[in-house]
Design a protein around this nucleic acid. Structure first.
Lengths: 192, 192
DNA sequence: CGAGGCCTTGACCGCGGTCAATGCCCGTGG
DNA sequence: CCACGGGCATTGACCGCGGTCAAGGCCTCG
């Protein structure tokens, strides 16, 4: 799929409420990125002016704690990367790295912000995205109240099966807050 | 402090950027509430049309899991209660109950929403509050990556000392995801 | 003064972390 | 084409953090 067709597909899928005028205003703020596995999108402490939509591929986000990588999320097709902190120009606490060769859509925030002032459609699009992200965060917080390793593993299996299929277990273990060995035993179906 | 003076104090403190016109638009949407300890503000599963600002007092929020109360947050002076889910009319997952005799400022959301359309000041006020809440959630999520009981207790001591002073230990324990007994031992300063 | 709520303290033990060895898969070079 | 090495997952042994159960102390309120 070529660059322009990817952008067109995005508008068809996610922004059907926009008028043609709004679409043409946003178009120059978009950019298709094709990057290889292991490419680092954002480094810890760095500020980036882009929000990314994953079109095809996968990414991981982690920070270092006592020299260990603690993973905070994984992104796949249709997931948005780095929305809030990038939008407000706050430095990232995490390093974001591609797990697979990926195609992404990059949104230049500095270009989009001025458009919001005079265009209620675009302003609402951004607000709605922010609200959706916030509800997602609340769900995630809920998820963290699960106490035992098995509870958390079962929840992952139910709500994010993709993660188990496409992400190395070592990363998933730190995401769940358990050791690689315990995750391995859970997968083996042992009754711990 | 009487009702109107509480509302005036609110505008002075939190909404200094608003013009007099905006203030007079919002004023009819506000209401001062004075309620006793143990009063239930919101029941699990209920939808409420209000967002509350705690002026004086304290509240707890919890849901039931296997018959136990799991606490998700505590609110004190200047804290906002129930913003996001109430704003979008989503039923509450939690029960919110006052821990002390409290004075609150209630915002009638149904009345405020129409004002946002034609008034950029009010719209921005709401958006900014939403964004602030989202950043707060991200910090909270970060906090949950602490693994041991001592780490979480130390973080609470550092970031929310008020909670330890004003909330029963039984509630705090479920908030930290540890047992009442373990919390008690941690406070006693034992090296667990 | 008795009852109930809340906190503390002790005893016990199981979940899950750490350490270590082994196996499997794959990319690279002889 | 096979050998070797490194990355990743599995499995076993051990043990400590923290949960559960139970008893006892202290304060408040009726």
């Amino acid at each position: 799929m070529e660059g322009n067709s990817i952008i067109d597909a995005y508008f068809n899928k996610h922004a059907s409420k926009l008028t043609d005028i709004s679409i043409e205003l946003i178009r120059p703020c978009l950019q298709v990125l094709e990057l290889p596995k292991k490419h680092v999108l954002v480094k810890e402490g760095q500020t980036t002016g882009y929000i990314y939509l994953m079109i095809k591929g996968a990414a991981r986000s982690y920070y270092l704690k006592n020299g260990k990588e603690i993973h905070t999320w994984f992104a796949f097709e249709d997931d948005v990367i780095g929305a809030l902190r990038n939008y407000y120009g706050i430095p990232s606490r995490e390093t974001i790295e591609l797990l697979e060769d990926s195609v992404m859509l990059g949104f230049n925030i500095q270009l989009i912000k001025p458009l919001m002032v005079g265009n209620a459609q675009i302003s609402n699009l951004v607000s709605a995205a922010l609200a959706e992200y916030t509800l997602y965060l609340e769900d995630k917080l809920y998820f963290t109240h699960l106490r035992t390793a098995r509870e958390r593993y079962d929840a992952l299996l139910k709500h994010e099966p993709k993660t188990l299929q496409r992400v190395p277990l070592t990363y998933i273990a730190s995401y769940l807050g358990i050791s690689r060995e315990t995750l391995s035993r859970l997968r083996a179906g042992q009754f711990l």
